[in-house]
Design a protein around this nucleic acid. Structure first.
Lengths: 336, 336
DNA sequence: AACCCATCTGGGAACGTTACCAAAATTTTG
DNA sequence: CAAAATTTTGGTAACGTTCCCAGATGGGTT
């Protein structure tokens, strides 16, 4: 049951550990016959290298931390897939932590990951400013950070991947206007998240341009859960203001709102068109399907992984900010 | 930038590494003054123990593998949370792999995890029999396995956590009958998954008992995606058979079917009641909300983690099979 | 004053692997 | 055929930590 090591092979073949090591690796300084003998024995005895020993030797844990607000919706899962695509083939492990949208838990998680000796951390933060000090500390202590989707308020010496929230929102609002909507509400996310304010700005800019901006139609939420979306819809209806469209910060908020409208027998899209920011399956499993800005989540993950690798390889590598393109997908929730 | 080690502390304080080690641990053989001095210096210089060194020393990687068909729906995410709750405080890392419902990828993932030297693997398999040989091999080589939700055909010397599919399905079908439904269809999952056949058996048993079983109302799917559910609903409608209820193998299938019915303007639950097996948010974000058997996913994860710990601590510990209770939650999709 | 015991500290091996340097074995060269 | 060059192998330190054993120091007892 005990694991076979190089030493066991050495004893078994009456060779030195150095020779075994050479045979197992790509060293040319070894007689082909010896190499073959070693390889055969290794296979027969079921030798598997011990990664822990290598990690110790080379001072890398080959662990990458992945810090996200939650993994219940598919958002982070899809990014994670991209990260895995790149990192697993290179022998990295990925450790996932969820912050529950709570900066204190995020803090605890980051510290835990440092404890775990990760080589780098890929993070979607849950509060624009709250843990800024810790991000800096961690980087100062030598662990690179890469941000995706939500980025910190201060620029920090870290690489980042995101989409252009402001512009994509603008295009989406233009679409709603094209569809004949003139009273477009916004379910805005928490202002502690940069994307939230960015999208709100895009929203306001376009409506103002068309002279139809009404601040009373903006509902700010506490979080980004389905329940938050529901509450926002309720608040909106309670205001007794006319509206014929909703642009929501996330697909979760949009879906929550949609369900509340359903329950109030408000037809979508006939009475109210709904659109949001997404990139996940959620947009297509509701009825009607949700028009949304589809972020290329998988690619974002792949790029984030690439960025962290750059920093791991060379800690002085310059930080990059990658702004990805997102596609607007028109679905039934905003009419045909 | 370089990490502070025990040796650095020793040099700095002119003490031996042994003494430092004792001061840092709970060893009583140390002078309180020395201990304090070391602790102060450790804090000041930012010493953090290197877990890799300990893993090497004690022959444990402190990594646990988590193998699931997918992480896009919240099912596995919720179980994962439970696993994390138990394992993170104990210093374990969790490595996640997704099989995409493909036994070949699952195989690759398991091998990868072995390569990574995990101390144990928690798995929700994707094919009842296909990788049985590998499960056995891995356990033979000394890595314990714990199955959750979907368990292998042969019993194997592994612990398992699941719910009683057959009985819970029976109760659900009884509920549908209580609600006055007499033509209840079943969207059955792939027969390569044990739970699928178990639930189908529960379905058939109750309908047979009531004398209303019709094999033509059973649609077997290829997978468990939303799309599969959609296709199943289409097939059902194409048969031109009357039906007033659907019991689906999973919430994803149920939702896919629901959306297709919506598109065909078939009212839920008025014309067709829908129920499924779940335990995730998905059941509540659709409209109408889905009546379902709610599996205690979080607890299943916690228990799976506990079971793997037992096996890690003592490889001869007896294997347990834990059958958990699941609650049926009545929601709008089956009427009030 | 000699001894013993308790308390505290230091030295070194070990976990599995590789990299460097030195030594041995083999082949090539003059 | 000896010397030189090359190929192949062995020995050992190192990564960071703990643990066992051996010393050292100090206080108390005869």
């Amino acid at each position: 049951m005990k694991r076979i090591t190089i030493k066991d092979l050495a004893k078994h073949l009456l060779l030195s550990t150095s020779t075994i090591s050479r045979a197992l690796g790509n060293d040319t300084n070894i007689h082909p016959d010896t190499k073959k003998k070693v390889l055969d024995a290794a296979k027969k005895l079921g030798y598997r290298p011990n990664p822990t020993a290598l990690n110790l030797k080379y001072g890398q844990s080959k662990n990458i931390g992945f810090v996200v607000p939650e993994m219940i919706t598919p958002f982070a899962s899809k990014v994670l897939r991209g990260v895995q695509n790149i990192l697993y083939p290179l022998g990295y492990r990925i450790i996932i932590t969820e912050s529950d949208e709570n900066p204190l838990i995020e803090r605890k998680n980051l510290l835990l990951l440092e404890e775990f000796n990760v080589d780098g951390i890929i993070i979607n933060l849950c509060h624009e400013t709250q843990n800024q000090d810790l991000y800096e500390q961690i980087m100062d202590r030598g662990t690179p950070l890469v941000f995706f989707d939500r980025i910190p308020a201060k620029s920090l010496a870290a690489s980042k991947v995101m989409v252009n929230d402001n512009i994509k929102t603008s295009l989406m609002i233009e679409h709603l206007i094209d569809m004949g909507r003139t009273r477009i509400a916004h379910i805005m996310g928490p202002s502690t998240i940069r994307n939230s304010t960015e999208r709100a700005m895009g929203y306001q800019r376009i409506l103002t341009k068309h002279g139809i901006f009404d601040p009373d139609l903006v509902i700010k939420t506490e979080g980004t859960t389905f329940e938050d979306g529901r509450n926002a819809a309720r608040q909106l209806l309670d205001k007794k203001l006319a509206f014929d469209g909703i642009f929501a910060f996330t697909d979760t908020l949009a879906i929550g709102a949609m369900n509340y409208l359903h329950e109030q027998h408000i037809k979508i899209p006939e009475k109210v068109a709904i659109a949001s920011f997404s990139g996940t399956e959620l947009a297509t499993i509701v009825h009607p399907q949700l028009t949304s800005v589809e972020q290329p989540l998988l690619q974002m993950g792949e790029i984030a992984a690439g960025l962290i690798l750059e920093k791991i390889k060379d800690s002085t590598a310059p930080s990059k900010t990658i702004v990805m393109d997102a596609e607007i997908i028109y679905r039934a929730s905003t009419g045909e």
